[in-house]
């Protein structure tokens, strides 16, 4: 195990950093897209709601790997070539944003109906009521399941290995096939993932406790 770390430490670290970067980029963008889609899904505008629903149902129900392979293999044939790292991030973002949209939608619907009625009845518009009354309450409902989505995202980023995405998993596979020491290699790789996901888990638990204390 020490041997692997000394011989391959530099590429493991590179993979770790790439995994971190890919996760972070996909997280930020899918959070924005997912939140908007979630709001659109409950919109009274049927076209908007329909389109958002279509997107969410589509990407919720096909494997992440297919989405990533599409951007790695098919997309370059039609448009412009992208490397594995980029294709992976695009796929992760599209896939995760569908899950975040579902979470946000459920959060908005979790706010009692009377809140919207109260806002509207004082003359606030639908979007003002959303902004000042519904969303601030939905955030509280959404944060715990959103934390799970973040952790899933980090773990799902290992799909980059399938498209030469230069992430932690990719280099892990490389090291395993060079050294034939699969056991030690994958344990090290798993530990690296835990370095990201465990603090995330504890942060979420802390935030949940804080939210509960405010109730």
């Amino acid at each position: 195990m020490i041997e692997i770390l000394t011989n391959y430490g530099d590429i493991l670290l590179e993979g770790f950093i790439n995994t971190l970067i890919a996760s972070l980029i996909a997280l930020v963008i899918s959070l924005i897209i997912g939140t908007l889609l979630g709001i659109f899904q409950v919109s009274t505008n049927r076209l908007l709601a329909g389109l958002a629903n279509f997107y969410v149902q589509l990407f919720l129900n096909i494997p992440l790997l297919i989405i990533v392979l599409f951007f790695y293999v098919v997309f370059p044939m039609l448009f412009v070539g992208v490397n594995g790292f980029t294709a992976g991030i695009i796929g992760l973002t599209i896939y995760t944003s569908a899950f975040i949209a579902e979470t946000v939608r459920a959060g908005i619907l979790g706010v009692p109906k009377g809140q919207m009625e109260a806002g509207l009845s004082t003359g606030l518009t639908y979007s003002e009521t959303m902004r000042y009354i519904i969303l601030p309450q939905a955030i509280k409902i959404v944060i715990p399941p959103l934390g799970n989505q973040f952790i899933n995202l980090v773990k799902n980023s290992s799909v980059l290995a399938m498209v030469a995405g230069l992430d932690l998993m990719y280099y892990g596979d490389l090291i395993a096939s060079e050294t034939f020491n699969t056991f030690d290699t994958y344990i090290i790789v798993a530990l690296f993932y835990l370095i990201i996901t465990l603090p995330l888990t504890y942060t979420m638990q802390y935030v949940e406790r804080r939210l509960a204390a405010n109730d």
């Binding site: 009377g114 109260a118 009845s121 004082t122 309450q137």
Partner: peptide, 20 residues
Amino acid sequence: INSIRKHVGMVFQHFNLYPH
């Protein structure tokens, strides 16, 4: 409708105060 709601107040059975 919003211009009318400005002039028509409503009190609900379950209050519907904003908890946050």
